Amino acid sequence: MEKSLVSVFLLILAVSHTLAKDATTKDGKRDTKEATKPKLPQTLSRGWGDYLIWTQTYEEALFKAKSNNKPIMVIHHLEDCPHSQALKKVFSEHKEIQKLAEKFILLNLVYETTDKHLSPDGQYVPRIIFVDPSLTVRADITGRYSNRLYAYEPTDIPLLYSNMQKALKLLKTEL
């Protein structure tokens, strides 16, 4: 009887020690920061603006653009592309762009669509294309590069902002 009590006691001690060890960091201290830090849910923004409303597919964006009479801004990028990451950082931190982006149907794609209209001059990243509510790709709203018309770099943020305004103005003049 005494042996079984000792065995149960040792088992309880081992389990409690293991559980206590899982609740501490490598240096033996409890990690209270991690437990109290609020976790943001994974969003469709992929870091381009977590508080903006993003669509999941191009088809959904087309439907919302038509039904809400708003232009679409499609951002093509790759998660492991340093140019895409640099543009994303500047885009997400630029308060005026984030505010203006609320007036668009937003979509960011890490893959190519089957719609060839979204790659009029080739498939490269980062690439930003505007589509008006009549579902027409605005080929006239371009970046500053002649070999990659829809490419933007972090230093091109003022031009991107201006092009966003242009897309919205074109919508108002066509109404």
Rank of each mutant, 00 (worst) to 15 (best):
P133D: 09
F130H: 06
T155F: 04
K89F: 05
N68M: 11
Y111H: 14
H77T: 01
Q98C: 03
A61V: 01
R46P: 01
D121Y: 09
C81P: 02
Y51W: 07
E112M: 13
S84N: 02
H76W: 02
G143L: 07
E60Y: 09
Y145N: 10
T57A: 03
I75T: 02
L159T: 13
L78D: 06
P82R: 03
P41C: 12
L135E: 14
K64S: 03
Y58G: 02
F104D: 01
T57E: 04
K99D: 12
V125E: 13
Q165W: 12
H76C: 04
H117Q: 15
W48T: 10
K88F: 10
L106H: 04
V90M: 07
N147M: 12
K103N: 14
K166V: 06
E79P: 00
I141A: 02
Y161V: 02
Y152A: 10
E96P: 00
P82Y: 10
K66I: 00
V74P: 00
L109S: 14
I75H: 02
Q123I: 14
L87R: 03
E112H: 14
F130V: 04
E96D: 11
H94T: 08
K70Y: 00
F91M: 02
N69I: 06
A86C: 00
L87W: 06
E93R: 09
E79I: 00
H83M: 02
T136C: 06
K95F: 05
K116Y: 06
R127Y: 01
I105G: 04
Y124E: 14
K66Q: 11
Q85I: 05
T114W: 08
I141C: 03
D50H: 13
I157F: 03
W48R: 08
A61C: 07
K64R: 11
N147T: 14
A101K: 01
W54D: 04
D156T: 05
D50V: 08
A151D: 13
C81S: 12
S92T: 01
Y150S: 03
S134V: 13
I53K: 15
L160Y: 08
N163L: 12
A151Y: 14
T43L: 07
R127V: 04
K99R: 13
L100G: 05
T114F: 13
V90C: 03
L44Y: 15
Q42K: 15
Q165S: 08
Y111E: 14
M164R: 04
K70T: 01
L87Y: 07
T142R: 10
Y124R: 08
T155Y: 09
D156E: 06
K95G: 04
Q165D: 08
L149E: 10
H76P: 00
L135C: 11
L107I: 02
I97N: 09
V110F: 14
T142N: 05
D132Q: 14
V125C: 13
G122C: 11
I105V: 15
I141G: 06
Y111R: 14
A151C: 10
R138N: 09
D80T: 00
K116L: 08
R144Q: 04
D80I: 00
A65D: 06
R46F: 15
F104S: 02
K116N: 05
S67Q: 10
E102D: 12
T142D: 02
L52F: 01
